[in-house]
Design a protein around this nucleic acid. Structure first.
Length: 500
DNA sequence: AAAAAAG
């Protein structure tokens, strides 16, 4: 199968050929002919399946005829996040280069006036997040009565984000006779309901969901204490010792944690950017762009970066926090090992994360082995090296010890052994009540190598990544000023420990 | 439990 059989125009075929793609993905192969036949399409597909090109390419073909009128866009694409919207625009810029097409991006966080001026000139393709789009319509600068084709992308994610009322409002503003392309990864009842109202006799296109992680990704978990400073210290060690690390995304569960980890890595000399939804839009775009260009090899991010963002060639994904929702794990890990390339995903797992890990392993249908190497949780009880500043805001994880933990223990003991798929992968720690002191190291089973005969991730084998801190030194945390142990490409160009 | 999006 090739692109030339799908009914796309010569111009679009030439643009596709110029990018080097020769074979359409299943979703493209199935959806493109329906779009060109001006049918409604219900596409059930995850990100990473080539979904974006499945609507961009036929839209470009359709848009070759006719032109836009002022304030009346011809097509409208709704996206859940600003970054995804910007990415769709890049697709139009790339494949529509040979066409004089007006593409406008209507997202929050950037100048309203520039967007308004562009609308006045007339746009063929309007790509928007719901809030800013409604802002423009309410102020009267935008009329949706000329929209011939509407794309609702990542509908289930919009549902999660509470956008569905906005989407329903927007749908009332576009003509009833429009063509609608509706994409979702899953079909919860609420999504089913809106497909019935938004779509007319839709052609259903479904591709097998990669509800699992790619086989080319080497996954592992590393045990850690639940204290954030221990996790940050472990992260630094993992970054230094990682094999073949070219660039990495480090995921945190909270925006606050993203900021803290980012600052901490900066302080320790790493060349690192941050991405989360509380950053202003120029900073978000700059971070993403620098990371894409390779100017920053490391990116600390919230789940805003977990889905859909096309960042080629990410060699490593780190879960600084284990995601509480197993789907998010799949999405995060999906940032690496794309298009058959190899990738590495390493999760820092505290005792509190065990439940989440079991759910993740169940979802992906495989156990995630312990990383090779000497990764052990530091002594916790009465740790004399505790620094008070690290204890701020830790009340929740320390206080209320008795009740919740008793509850968890009880639950555990009622769980049948064979119902826990990964019991074999992680023998000792979670089988033991969390309150008991850990036995001496010698008594614990040593982590078994899980990945064939891969040599131990020892820094002496990977000179390019740097050497690990000696254990004693780690206890005391590294001197922020001393960056000599970091390989050059991970090193911040600015040597002064600014912003400390 | 949190993130995402309109200021």
């Amino acid at each position: 199968m090739s692109f030339s059989n799908l009914g796309l125009s010569e111009k679009v075929l030439a643009a596709v050929a110029a990018t080097g793609y020769t074979t359409p993905t299943p979703i493209q192969e199935q959806a493109i002919p329906h779009v060109l036949a001006r049918k409604d399409v219900l596409g059930i597909a995850q990100t990473g399946t080539g979904k974006t090109a499945a609507f961009v390419l036929p839209m470009l073909t359709i848009l070759e005829k006719g032109r836009a009128r002022a304030r009346m866009p011809r097509t409208l694409i709704l996206e859940p996040t600003r970054e995804l919207a910007a990415q769709v625009k890049e697709n139009f810029d790339r494949y529509g280069a040979g066409q004089k097409l007006n593409v406008a991006l209507l997202i929050g966080g950037v100048s309203f006036g520039d967007q308004d001026a562009k609308l006045t000139r007339g746009v063929d393709v309007l790509i928007a997040t719901p809030g800013r789009l409604l802002d423009h319509t309410e102020r009267g600068g935008l009329l949706l009565t000329g929209v011939e084709l509407l794309v609702i992308d990542e509908a289930d994610r919009m549902l999660d984000m509470g956008f569905i009322p906005d989407i329903e409002r927007i749908c009332k503003l576009v003509p009833f006779t429009r063509q609608t392309l509706f994409f979702t990864a899953t079909m919860p009842p609420e999504i089913r309901r809106i497909t019935e109202t938004f779509l007319h006799n839709p052609q259903k296109v479904e591709v097998s969901k990669p509800a699992t992680t790619a086989v080319t990704v080497t996954q592992s978990q590393v045990p850690a204490g639940k204290k954030a400073h221990e996790k940050r210290e472990l992260l630094r060690r993992l970054l230094r010792e990682a094999k073949d690390l070219k660039n990495a995304i480090i995921f945190c569960n909270r925006k606050r944690e993203v900021a803290i980890v980012h600052k901490s890595l900066q302080k320790h000399g790493f060349s690192v950017g941050a991405l989360h939804g509380d950053m202003d839009q120029p900073a978000r775009m700059a971070a993403l762009e620098q990371f894409r260009k390779g100017e920053l090899p490391l990116l600390v991010a919230s789940d805003v970066a977990a889905r859909g963002l096309d960042i080629p060639e990410v060699s490593h994904v780190f879960n600084f926090d284990v995601p509480h929702h197993p789907d998010d794990y799949v999405h995060r890990v999906g940032r690496t090992g794309r298009a058959g390339r190899s990738g590495t995903a390493i999760s820092i797992v505290t005792p509190l994360d065990q439940k989440s890990m079991v759910a993740i392993e169940k979802l992906i249908g495989q156990s995630i082995p312990r990383a090779e190497g000497d990764y052990e949780v530091h002594a916790e009880a009465g740790d004399a090296t505790d620094r008070p500043r690290e204890q701020r805001g830790r009340e929740r994880s320390r206080g209320g010890r008795g009740k919740p933990q008793r509850g968890r223990d009880r639950e555990r003991s009622h769980e049948p052994r064979e119902a826990r798929p990964s019991a074999e992968a992680r023998p000792a720690p979670e089988a033991r009540p969390a309150r008991e002191p850990r036995p001496p190291r010698e008594a614990r089973p040593s982590p078994e190598p899980r990945h064939g005969s891969r040599p131990q991730a020892n820094a002496s084998h990977v000179p390019s990544i740097g050497r690990p801190e000696p254990r004693r030194q780690r206890e005391a945390d590294t001197e922020p000023g001393d960056h000599s142990h970091l390989p050059a490409f991970l090193l911040r160009p600015v040597r002064s420990p600014a912003g400390a």
